[in-house]
């Protein structure tokens, strides 16, 4: 199967400090790819290169190419807002925008120019259902989003990304602020979502990486150490450093 996202020899620098060194990585469609490794390994940077969110940071430099469906997303003339509609993102902390549950979900679609009320209602219900949140909030759609629990807020953020009907969903430690039950709900939701979306997730623990990974890529100090199907990487890692990390010898 054709990879959904390809990194071709990508290096990335914040000033002089390298965050990624010559990363070449293929991310397959309709599967969960886990990007994991110790802090400072370049995981978040890698994620934010896929929706060009790092454009917002000053003083950075990139070499190499990032392809989405075979198209270089860093060539001049790429419509960045459009790219970000195709590539949704969920952050480490639940970050509801000010406003109601409804306003949060419909922020993206409205910016994209969806005006038809029936269509908006449909998007609202569909994305909340996909994020396994509909039953809990269907009677509170016009409550402030800040009144939801932390776990609900994070699923709201997932739903908000899904409302854009993206092709790719990026999640940066989406459960780091959540309790185990909420974490379980988010992970369950992801297992459903992967049939329709390409999911790239930075997990908040090795255990979570092992639980959700169809494919797993281990990063150490900006370098891709290895990438394998999850069941292989977590049982028979090829590289000694991967083995040391997943068995808890460092990290």
């Amino acid at each position: 199967m054709e990879p959904k996202i390809r990194f071709q020899n990508v290096s990335y620098f914040y000033g002089d400090r390298p965050a990624l060194r010559g990363v070449t990585l293929d991310i397959p469609p309709n599967a969960i790819t886990v990007i994991f490794g110790p802090a400072g390994g370049g995981k978040t940077t890698l994620l934010r290169l896929i929706n060009r969110l790092n454009d917002e940071v000053e003083g950075t430099r990139m070499t190499g190419r990032v392809l989405l469906d075979g198209q270089d997303i860093y060539t001049p003339g790429v419509d960045v807002p459009l790219l970000r509609r195709r590539v949704g993102m969920v952050f480490a902390l639940p970050l509801p925008l000010p406003g109601t549950v409804r306003e949060n979900i419909l922020y993206g679609p409205k910016l994209a120019g969806v005006r038809d009320q029936a269509r908006l209602d449909e998007i609202l219900e569909r994305s909340l259902r996909l994020a396994a949140l509909w039953d809990e909030v269907k009677d509170r759609l016009d409550d402030p989003a800040s009144r939801l629990s932390g776990g609900q807020q994070q699923r709201l953020c997932i739903a908000r990304s899904l409302a854009m009907e993206p092709e790719v969903l990026l999640l940066d430690e989406p459960t780091s602020g959540l309790d185990p039950i909420s974490t379980g709900k988010v992970e369950e939701a992801l297992q459903e979502l992967k049939h329709q979306y390409t999911i790239v997730i930075v997990p908040h623990s090795v255990q979570q990486a092992a639980r959700v990974a169809d494919y797993a890529a281990f990063f150490l100090m900006g370098e891709l150490v290895e990438c394998q199907p999850g069941r292989d990487l977590f049982t028979t890692p090829r590289d000694r450093r991967t083995e040391d990390y997943i068995t808890g010898r460092f990290g």
Partner: peptide, 12 residues
């Protein structure tokens, strides 16, 4: 973060 979220949802 609000600016980042807005950008990530396709906002200019």
């Amino acid at each position: 973060e609000f600016r980042l979220v807005s950008a990530s949802l396709g906002g200019t």
